[in-house]
Design a binder for these strands. Structure first.
Length: 471
RNA sequence: GCUCCGAUAGUGUAGUCCGGCCAAUCAUAUUGCCCUCUCACGGCAAUGACCAGGGUUCGAAUCCCUGUCGGAGCACCA
């Protein structure tokens, strides 16, 4: 099998579907798959030189390693050779009609005057195409199919055209005569030995078009499956590489890994495992209708993967400072993980005031349980320690909330899909390493992205940054 | 306009080929309860679907026809 991306940028979430499915089939049936960059249009689908590696990185993130990697732009001579053979067989002709002219003839089922040229003329004109004698638009090589085919999309399609713009890859910058996807991909699929093709419904007619080519060469066409488009809920921005590229260019997004971008790099930075994405993609199956993938499915998969191993911490968003009274303990010791007592407890210095989220501020005279610390009653603008037992919580009279010490907490910037949130976390969070996952109690899972090297200081720009993953 | 393709709960999916075991599977979502130092995890329960209409048949999600809705192609893009 093959994954044949157009290297025009890093992958968005939808792109994960192809490697997820063929990678999984490979594992299941002891198969083989390659990545083949179909970079045969240096102009309108101009390849981005950085995208080749970016895509391979994304693939690695998803947990797959291709058995081989090809670049179509390395293989022009192969395509030229096959075109020559085809011309010998009378299966192709050079045509200098303009696009509109040919389109009109085609739609009425009429052959153009170039169709009956003898093979020698065609071959010599094709060599001139390769030699760059013609300018863009002057000459194409068409596959002779059936000019009266009932589906106009299949009639005498273009196999090679001239492009004046040099290819961005140095190795390919001299070529001017480029194959169209249908030709290049057809030849490569056979030569590489692809037995099964999966591709989008937009290429539904490709198999039929390429069928004419396979008939000329006496080849057998691979099994082919077409699937519909994937939409992801939960994103405002359109999931298209070119749209994302523009948004980044305009500064609307910080980069391909901005938490608001529907890209694999973004999910990766948020600490979502490739496996969670792959599993969600597998669940979509391969139906030809368009599907909506719910991000919640990816989140649920990820939660299952990380929940057991992720320790709990406190983060208070937009905290309200409340003084403490009544001599509470100096230190709080909530568990690192409720299901794993053996991991021990955190040590959170309490101080003389704490931060609470607005929703958690108790009403006057109401009691509240600061998780890991104890019971307090809100009296005269302070939280008075009552010393009551956990029984008050079990009886259901007292709510338990998370909190952070007002003084010895660390400022945190949490980047989310809805924008940045600031808050303060228990001091232990500053000791964590980049890439570690945390679960902020009653907030959600997040990945530690950047930990300041020096001592935490509110005035410094070097802040602790985490990326929010999901609830 | 011409040519293809598709339609099962909010979402995804199984079942459709070879009609009955489907008053329709599983997951996710939502809600409620249980557990718990309130999150998460786990347990239990509830919610919720065969696009419509005809036909064939003892029997249709499944086969046939029509309609509706949706998607794709008709490029010198991929």
């Amino acid at each position: 099998m093959r994954c044949a991306p157009n290297p025009n940028g890093p992958w968005h979430v939808g792109h994960a579907r192809m490697p997820a499915v063929i990678g999984t089939y490979k594992q299941r049936y002891d198969g083989w798959f390659c990545v083949r960059f179909d970079d045969t249009d240096p102009e309108t689908k101009r390849p981005d030189l950085e995208a080749y590696d970016a895509i391979l990185e994304d693939l690695d993130y998803l947990g797959f390693e291709p058995d081989a990697t090809f670049k179509a732009s390395d293989r022009l001579d192969i395509y030229y050779d096959h075109a020559r053979k085809l011309i010998d067989m009378g299966g192709a002709y050079t045509c200098s009609c303009s696009g509109e002219e040919f389109s009109e003839l085609k739609n009425s089922g009429e052959a153009c005057p170039h169709r009956d040229k003898d093979a020698e003329t065609v071959l010599s004109e094709f060599e001139d195409m390769i030699g760059g004698v013609y300018d863009s638009g002057e000459m194409v090589l068409r596959i002779k199919t059936d000019i009266e085919h009932k589906n106009p999309a299949l009639r005498d399609w273009v196999a090679f055209r001239m492009i004046d713009t040099p290819h961005p890859r140095e190795e390919a910058e001299e070529y001017r005569c480029w194959p169209m996807l249908d030709f290049q991909s057809a030849i490569d699929d056979h030569i590489i030995g692809i037995t099964h093709i999966i591709r989008g419904i937009d290429l539904q007619d490709s198999a039929k078009r390429q069928g004419f080519l396979y008939d000329y060469f006496g080849w057998e066409y691979p099994e082919v499956v077409h699937w519909g488009h994937v939409q992801i809920d939960a994103y405002d921005v359109k999931m298209s590489t070119s749209t994302l590229s523009e948004l980044i260019e305009d500064g609307e997004l910080d980069g391909w890994d901005d938490p608001r971008a529907p890209t694999l790099k973004s999910l990766r930075r948020r600490g979502i495992r490739g496996e969670a994405i792959v599993d969600a993609m597998i669940g979509l199956g391969t139906s030809t209708s368009d599907v909506d993938l719910a991000m919640s499915t990816i989140y649920a998969n990820n939660r299952e993967l990380i929940d057991e191993e992720t320790d709990r911490r406190f983060l208070v968003r937009d905290g309200n400072e409340v003084p403490l009274g009544g001599s509470p303990p100096d230190e709080a010791n909530p568990q690192l993980h409720p299901n794993h007592e053996d991991r021990g407890v955190r040590k959170i210095p309490v101080g003389d005031a704490v931060l609470l989220e607005s929703d958690d501020l108790p009403q006057r005279e109401e009691r509240v349980w600061l998780k890991g610390l104890g019971c307090f009653q809100y009296t005269r603008d302070t939280l008075q320690y009552t010393g009551e037992d956990i029984e008050v919580v079990r009886e259901g009279d007292v709510d338990v909330v998370h909190w952070a010490p007002a003084r010895e907490s660390v400022p945190v910037r949490m980047r989310t899909m809805e924008g940045d949130v600031t808050g303060r976390a228990e001091p232990g969070v500053a000791e964590l390493a980049t890439d570690e996952m945390v679960q902020f109690v009653r907030v959600g899972f997040a990945r530690i992205d950047h930990v300041p090297s020096g001592v935490a200081d509110d005035s410094s720009d070097d802040e602790l940054v985490v990326y929010y993953a999901h609830p």
